[in-house]
Design a binder for these strands. Structure first.
Lengths: 381, 381
DNA sequence: GTGACTTAGTATCACCATGAAACTATGTAG
DNA sequence: CTACATAGTTTCATGGTGATACTAAGTCAC
């Protein structure tokens, strides 16, 4: 597992130095003057704090920016992004998707490695191999984040990952000895939330929700700038929210759960009864405009999705809701029905819902895992 | 409006002095040793910070407590509760309910004043009269909190209070000149949340939800120790959450909203169709054990309430849910059905819901308003 | 161009909240 | 009565902070 790794960030950075470094990372480039205003400290303190950060190479001074008005131009400071890199790995039931990112979570390399076995020890070996291979491409990788579908403790113990067939697996303990860099194991959905929160569409929001649809229904919530991380957070219990008394019965015996209506398997189950066994998710969505039976299936599900979004808006009161996941095509094909579903259960006096639909792929999921590492080892939770 | 008022708290208290004063208020009595441990400061700092607080009379030293083990006994510090008092006023469509509380929100006096008119200026006059009368009983009232049903801005502007018929009323501006103490106007439900958070059942929780049923459905959420106070927070938009496709139609044209099922008017509407026009809420609940028609109405509603609670648990993920309000009898009479409603839509892997049912009256609503004042002018938000 | 002006960033210094350490106070155990 | 344990106080050095005066680097008017 050799890789061109130098020690991680010089020192874990004390209070104000940490605040400055994080502010520049997340909102940079920033001049000293801007930092003083944003962090509410005196100009003198900024000078004192910034100096060692520039000397250590963590921050770099950019060329003075020509100001519009009078006075000395500002000298923006930015994070040095060519020095430290991070690996993010998303484990699915068929493959390992890995990316290398900068400290600002920009993807600079990626790879996919098919999984021959789902045996935890073998997967750990495969993940270590993939990380070593990426590091050999010349990136100084400082830490790794690995994500998977299921609740994970801070130490990397997986209580249950149904799609992988893992139960009570201490994946962190399996993988950590195979790496020579710090490792964090995270729930995949929470990792995606972290990416949106620090570097994504929710960067300027400290109160938002993320909802994913696909093989399951995923949900994460950020309030007051903090990600909700209780034991239930990785379970996506929202999948059992009541949406339709006429819905099917879920694996736990509930009637009309979100997961009996919104997941891709649920959609395909209805579609195959109506349109034939061979139909795929894409075909179902494509046929909706012309085929009444397909349209009915899509619209019913999209309407229910709107109800779910309205419920989230009323209960969690987020300022923004990001909707994404492999099954996001439903929200696009059924956009009108989705909007009707929202309106059917939204208080008319309430603020309109700021809903953002995102199409993402494996890269974004893996990037989320990299952000887990950046958050854990650099930004701090 | 004369009242025996001395200036409010000496000084707004700086950082660590404030932390110490608040910790003793909320969790006292506490010895200096305990404060050092809890606030993670050195013993010397505690001595330095505590001294002026005792000298100013805000804190008092209690008798040394005989310790179990060896060593010098601890000398507990407690908040002086006989010096500063606060008034809380809840305005309903029929009356003003007012209480005087200590700094620790213990009710020491209360009164009710019927409202002859709902004209805002006249109500303001009545509130001022009630506050003056309470102050004349010998309590040095430092600040007042007033709560009502509807969204209120920080300055006391009421955008809409349907039960009072107030729309765009600057009640703070009307009332403030009539008082000689600081005033805060608050949403009634948020005020109740504040009382639970600082001095009530949720004191040890920094993440909980409060749900009330009665003439409407009220909802408040605390996450990370902070009360959600967006513009929608006072609207209780949760009243439109979808619970039952077979429910009635609400005033906004939605089908199966929580408010068409759970509110006392909704319950009575169904009961009068089945059991006669004269039945009251109490009678309906009392008859449920023996009368199948009454039982069906109660159980259907309680089941739906359980679904609502499960939805809150899944979406907001609180560690505790407090259920209360004038219509709380439904949750008691229909306890079994409520529990079935929860189980019908709760992920089996999720942690059990810590549900607390509270029976409260006007006193508790008014006390909430007093806590609004204490929070605003003493504890800080 | 030159000097007045404006704004960014730096150097110096007094301040003060903090923790470490030594000390005092007040109890129990033998 | 002495040894000991724990609470609380005093003293003092430290270090992060803002105020202030300063330097740096530009624009603008003439």
């Amino acid at each position: 597992m050799s890789s061109p790794v130098t020690p991680p960030l010089p020192v874990p950075l004390d209070g104000m130095a940490h605040s400055v470094a994080v502010d520049v990372l997340l909102n940079g480039p920033l001049s000293r003057k801007q930092l003083a205003t944003r962090l509410r400290i005196s100009p003198g303190s900024v000078t004192r704090v910034v100096k060692p950060l520039v000397e250590s190479g963590l921050l770099v001074e950019l060329a003075p920016v020509p100001t519009a008005g009078m006075g000395r131009p500002e000298e923006p400071l930015d994070t040095e992004l060519r020095r430290d890199f991070y690996v993010g790995v998303k484990i699915t039931e068929t493959a390992i998707h890995a990316v290398v990112t900068t400290l600002r979570a920009q993807v600079v390399a990626e790879t996919t490695h098919p999984l021959a076995s789902l045996e935890p020890a073998e997967v750990a070996q495969d993940v270590a191999t993939v990380i070593a291979e990426l590091a050999q491409r010349g990136y100084a990788v400082r830490a790794a984040g690995v994500s998977l579908g299921g609740p994970v403790t801070a130490e990397g113990w997986v209580s249950g990952a149904p799609l992988l067939g893992w139960y009570s697996v201490d994946f962190g303990a399996l993988l950590r000895p195979l790496l020579n860099i710090p490792l964090v194991v995270d729930n995949d959905l929470l990792a995606l939330v972290r990416a949106e929160k620090w570097f994504g569409a929710a960067k300027s929001y400290d109160h938002f929700a993320l909802l994913t649809i696909g093989s399951g229904v995923g949900y994460g919530l950020v309030v007051g700038g903090r990600i909700l991380e209780g034991p239930d957070a990785g379970l996506s219990t929202i999948a059992h929210l009541p949406l339709d008394i006429g819905g099917g019965v879920c694996a736990q015996g509930h009637t009309g759960c979100a997961e009996t209506i919104l997941t891709t398997p649920a959609l395909l189950g209805r579609a195959r009864l109506a349109l034939g066994d061979s139909i795929t998710h894409e075909q179902l969505l494509a046929r909706a405009p012309s085929n009444p039976a397909a349209a009915a299936i899509v619209e019913t599900a999209a309407f229910a999705l709107g109800k779910l979004i309205a419920s989230i808006a009323s209960v969690a009161m987020p300022h923004k809701i990001i909707l994404t996941g492999d099954g996001i095509g439903l929200a696009i094909a059924g956009a009108a029905a989705l909007q009707r579903g929202i309106e059917a259960h939204r208080d008319q006096r309430a603020a309109p819902i700021d809903l953002e639909v995102q199409v993402i792929g494996f890269t974004e999921w893996a990037r989320g895992a990299a952000v887990s590492a950046i958050e854990t080892f650099v930004v701090g939770r």
